[in-house]
Each structure stands twice: as C-alpha cells, then as structure tokens.
Simulated scan of single mutants.
Amino acid sequence: MNKHAPLSSVLTDVTSAKGLPNAHYIDADVFNEEKESVLFANWSGIGFGKDVPEAGDAKPVNFLGMPLLMVRDRNGDLGVFQNTCRHRGMILVDKPQKIRGAIRCPYHSWCYGLNGELRTAPHVGGPGQSTHENLDFSELGLVRIRSYVWRDVVFVNIDGNAPEFEEVHADLMARWKEFEQPMYHGGESGSLQLELDSNWKLAVENFCESYHLPWVHPGLNSYSRLEDHYNITEMGKYSGQGTLVYRQFEGENGEKLKDFENLSETWNEGAEYIVVYPNVMLGVQRDHGFAFILEPVTHEKTREHIELYYAEKPEDAPHHEALRAKNAALWAEVFQEDVFVVEGMQKGRHGVKFDGGRFSPAMDAPTHCFHHWVASQVEKGRS
C-alpha cells in the first residue's frame, strides 16, 4: 500500500473522482500526517463554551496528544492555552476545576493568571527570592493558542497560520446569520457521547449526505424523505444537507419548544446540517440546534461529543423538560443508527483492492466536497 499515493484522482470533478485512498483511514503514519496538515493547520473544534461557563472555570483537553486548557477569565472571555508550565513542562491542570486564585503549577508553584500571564515564581532567584535578573516574566506567560467560539463550539488553530476564523467561515456565518442569537444548553439530557471504531473522516462523510436515509434511518425517512432533502456544497469551505420538511416535536397536548426569534419563513419547515471542516458537525432547526465535535483518538477510533441547545434556558422552562428529553432521545436514536455504517465502512477500508470508491454525482456531492478539501490540505502540507 502506497501511503503517499498521488491524490489527483480525488482532486477532480465529482463525476469522475475517486474517494481518498485506504491509507487515509487505516494507516497510523497517514493519520499523523493529517493531524498536522488537516487538523492542526485549520480551525478544529476541541470543546464547548458551556463547559467553562463562569470566571475561573478551567477544563483540560487532550487534542491529538496536544495538552490544551480552556479557561474563562474575569472579563468573561474564553481563552485556550497550552496546558504546560513554562518552567519545566509540567501539566498544569489535570481535571476540570474552578481556579480560585491563579493557575498554579503543582511542581514548583509557578503561578499564572487566567489570562496566561506569569504572576509569581517562588524562590526562582534563590530561597526567598521571587525574581531573577535573567528571567523576564512578560516573556514566560502560557502559550496562547488561537481560538474562536462560534455556536458554543471552541475552535482552535494549533499551528497559528490559518486565516482568521471569520474570514474562513464568512459564507457559512452569513448563511446562518438568523441564528446568531442566544442559545442555551439543554442540561443533562442535552449531552451524548458515542465511541466509534472508525476513522473520524467517515463520521463526517456519513453526516454530509442524506442518500442513506431510507435504509439507515427508516423512522426519520418516514416523514423527512430522501426527496425532501437537498445537497449543500461550498467547495473548499463546507458541505452538508438540508431538509424542506423539518417537523417540530410536540408534547402530548400539542405543546412545542420555543422557537428562536425573528426567523424567516425558510425555517418554518426547513433545517440544515453542515460540516464545518474539518471536525465539527452542526444542525439548526427553528426550535433547537446541535453540535458534534469529532475527537480523533487514533486512526481507527473516534469519540463523538454531541450537545443540544435551545432558545430558552432549561431552568426558565421546566414545563418543557419532557419535550427536551423526547427531542434528545429521538436524536440519540438517529445518531446511534449511524454507528454500524461508519464502523462498517472502516472495516471495508481494509479491503486492499478498494480504490477509494466512486461518488454518485447526484447524491454524493457533499461527501466529495469534503474528500476534495482533505486531499487539498494534505497536498498543501506535502508541498
């Protein structure tokens, strides 16, 4: 198997393109290559703002072996730092916690503010001496990682070279501008985590398209049929699918969740499901939204972090708890129905004679769009 096979067969029109070669799913070396050229070189999702809601809240994240720390500062801003002390490289925070004073290294007690600045370094100049003429504290703050929060997803650009998030995703942000309003996490029933024996890209590919609905999601397809869906393809930017017949969930007495405010008629019965390249999958509906972060654990293991959001705080609408729980259960059923498909494709990728497969020009354009983007990032990294 040629790990670095030319990707020219992917970087062509959907009518003739092949999918990414097997090595991009089953080879650890190619996984590490994609870590650098696809995941670290672009804006990848690592966590959710709701996990650090108040000043002083801190949550460590291991992103592809990179120790990161999400912190909410005194101004309410969320920052991301390398979770590594500037002194001897000790991990600073090993579990989610409230930072009462400073971020303190457990090794030699160097202390950092919530903004990453080095504040104190006890005995650094000798016993009882907290300064040294050769150490400039202003140069020894925590390494800040470029970050941006959109739809409560915390995106980071590890290598620091990507264009600004708002520039990269300007078109998508404009497309969903109507949803730029407060949204609130659904509480305990609003979180789901799934473990997949699969490469992370296969979860993206499956989410992109509606082609599989009649066979994999018969319940969903009974009211949101294949012919009610449309492809969303923005080459080099994002892709996904939409439906023209989103059906609001109702309670026993016909009650419904509160809608987001001032939405156009497009969203009366419309909904869209889009992948923000590389590893974030988002859905918007008139009365709720959701976000997936795909955590690539290894080349053949992925963890899905899924969160549901609503137009009102759960504590302000306790009468809707049953509706939120029903909504969460229905989505959990749909998401779990996809697991065997994603894992089945991973198994199939070990077929040494598989050539990447062909796309249906009519049905697979969103998936081809993603393959094309990944291939372009890998080629860029190789150049």
Rank of each mutant, 00 (worst) to 15 (best):
326 K>V: 13
223 Y>H: 13
271 A>W: 12
336 Q>W: 06
308 L>F: 13
179 F>A: 06
300 E>K: 07
62 N>E: 13
28 A>W: 00
199 N>M: 03
90 M>I: 09
100 R>N: 08
363 M>Y: 13
270 G>W: 10
58 A>F: 12
348 G>I: 15
121 A>Y: 05
32 N>W: 02
23 A>T: 12
194 L>I: 11
119 R>T: 05
315 E>G: 07
99 I>N: 11
192 L>A: 13
137 F>Q: 00
226 L>R: 11
121 A>T: 11
66 M>E: 01
129 Q>R: 15
244 L>Q: 15
117 E>H: 09
351 G>W: 08
73 D>Q: 10
229 H>Y: 07
343 E>F: 09
233 T>W: 05
349 R>Q: 13
214 P>H: 12
276 V>M: 14
290 F>P: 00
207 F>Q: 00
308 L>R: 05
161 N>A: 11
118 L>V: 02
353 K>L: 08
65 G>W: 00
269 E>N: 10
134 N>T: 08
340 F>G: 10
330 L>W: 06
126 G>S: 07
329 A>M: 00
346 Q>E: 02
246 Y>F: 08
373 W>Q: 05
151 R>D: 14
17 A>Y: 03
215 W>C: 15
61 V>Y: 15
266 T>I: 13
251 G>V: 10
116 G>D: 04
138 S>Y: 02
217 H>R: 08
45 G>M: 06
238 Y>V: 00
307 E>I: 12
169 H>N: 14
200 W>D: 09
133 E>F: 11
36 E>I: 08
351 G>P: 02
259 D>W: 15
371 H>G: 00
13 D>G: 03
258 K>W: 07
359 F>W: 09
206 N>Q: 01
357 G>C: 01
12 T>P: 05
131 T>I: 09
194 L>D: 10
110 W>Y: 00
78 L>A: 01
198 S>G: 09
141 G>I: 02
330 L>A: 09
209 E>A: 03
59 K>H: 15
372 H>W: 07
104 R>E: 09
101 G>R: 10
71 V>Y: 08
156 V>L: 03
79 G>E: 12
102 A>T: 06
233 T>D: 15
5 A>G: 02
165 F>R: 10
42 N>Q: 11
368 H>D: 03
245 V>F: 08
209 E>S: 14
114 L>N: 11
15 T>P: 04
233 T>Y: 09
228 D>L: 04
32 N>H: 05
